[in-house]
Design a protein around this nucleic acid. Structure first.
Lengths: 235, 235
DNA sequence: CTCTGTATGAGTGTATCCACTATTACAAAG
DNA sequence: CTTTGTAATAGTGGATACACTCATACAGAG
């Protein structure tokens, strides 16, 4: 049996990756902040090299920007980029829920209700980890699609906007969990109509974007450091 | 003025990345083949390290699989994975064409026709580089969406299936360029109806998948080496 | 006081080196 | 002849070392 538990890092590079990812998601490393390999390496009791390779991975996911000879900075998102990510998420999650529809039996629906309940509880209790519950809700639906790459893509998109979402939820009086109508998504799923569920999910995802964008705009948060994009630009 | 031309590699690592990517796309490195850093490093007149980091990038894009302590192999796609990639591409390119619609003026439509013509010419002339022309056709449409990340994602998907496509086009008598009806897409764009264009693009993309899949199945090509997926699996 | 040139230091990219893992080939036992 | 244990080798992950780039601070000229 493989004794490396799922959450366990097999290699130093992986450990570095997880640690830095965590710190970006949580907001410990702010957009625009420069990440110095040596510092992080000392912190994790390893050398610079695995940290550098972790940077590479993060750069490919757009969380960090590496300019040659000029180091690695946490990449904030412009308003336009946030919109773009939500647009992409909307069609991908729409696809996911459509593909997941055949698998929604009674048990799955019950579990879905559980997720809803947990979310609402977290929202009522102050909303500190409402965001995590919300991501789990979406992840559960996507998971039922049975499409590994699709799931991973969507997860990456959630992670990319997470830092912005956190500051939003932290600073705003009327946060998402008060107005976001996830119930509509669940209702649509219950109808059994795949096309309908897809459309509702699309709308649901897109609805958050303008409010988040407005908030960031009001804070003047255009930390515009466009990340190096994943693949080669030209086909 | 920046004297580093766009296609120029600023760093050794980037050079390695481009070289290996090229060799995977072209089919020089076959799925399942093991990539030995030292060999490639010698070939490119550099040390192992930049090559290793290039591997990382390729792994993140799913083109290569790195198992700890067990090296780096070119990751072939299973039939299921190919279907999945086409599904994802269909919704993303559908989104792209929808967003691009407002920008289709007379000039853009003319250029689109140019692309079509070039494609048909390449197809008639034996189809050696029909695939590249086809990718350029799609890239042109996506480019008009003005969404950098969306464009990059789609490009990455095209690259991922490119090796399989190449063997298909090379081995089959009735290849895609004979039956793929790109004209329908252009026609739909001409109507000016964004929703319609999106639907047509979706269908267009999905149509290729089953035929490619059938071909690969007939060759028994289930080179099932599922790549390490981009982001963290759990949200 | 401002501007410009230089020097110093921090940080990056690459090469080399070392320790450990895995795989292969081979030999001895059954 | 097959099987199993062991040794040798190729290859991987990580650390250190070195050369080069960039940025900042400072000094001298205007």
């Amino acid at each position: 049996m493989s004794f490396a538990a799922k959450g366990m890092a097999a290699t130093a590079q992986d450990e570095a990756y997880r640690a830095i990812l965590q710190d970006i998601r949580s907001g410990r490393y702010q957009p625009g902040e420069r990440l110095i390999p040596e510092t992080i390496a000392r912190e994790l009791a390893m050398s610079r090299m695995p940290v550098r390779e972790a940077f590479q991975r993060l750069a490919n996911e757009g969380l960090v920007l590496i300019r040659p000879n000029r180091g690695c900075v946490v990449s904030g998102l412009t308003i336009e980029e946030i919109y773009e990510l939500f647009e992409i998420r909307s069609v991908l999650e729409g696809l996911a829920v459509r593909l997941a529809m055949p698998r929604f039996d009674a048990a799955a629906l019950a579990e879905l209700d559980d997720h809803l309940a947990r979310m609402h509880r977290a929202g009522a209790a102050g909303g500190a980890d409402w965001l995590s519950r919300h991501q789990e809700f979406h992840a559960y639906i996507c998971g039922l699609s049975g499409r590994p790459k699709l799931i991973a893509q969507i997860a990456a998109l959630h992670i990319a906007v997470e830092p912005s979402m956190r500051v939003w939820l932290h600073h705003v009086a009327q946060p998402a969990h008060a107005t976001e109508r996830q119930d509509e998504v669940v209702e649509a799923i219950r109808t059994g109509d795949a096309e309908h569920a897809e459309a509702v999910m699309r709308d649901h995802v897109l609805r958050t974007a303008p409010r988040l964008a407005e908030f960031l705009r009001s804070r003047g948060q255009a930390a515009g450091l466009s990340p190096t994009l994943p693949a080669s630009a030209q086909l």
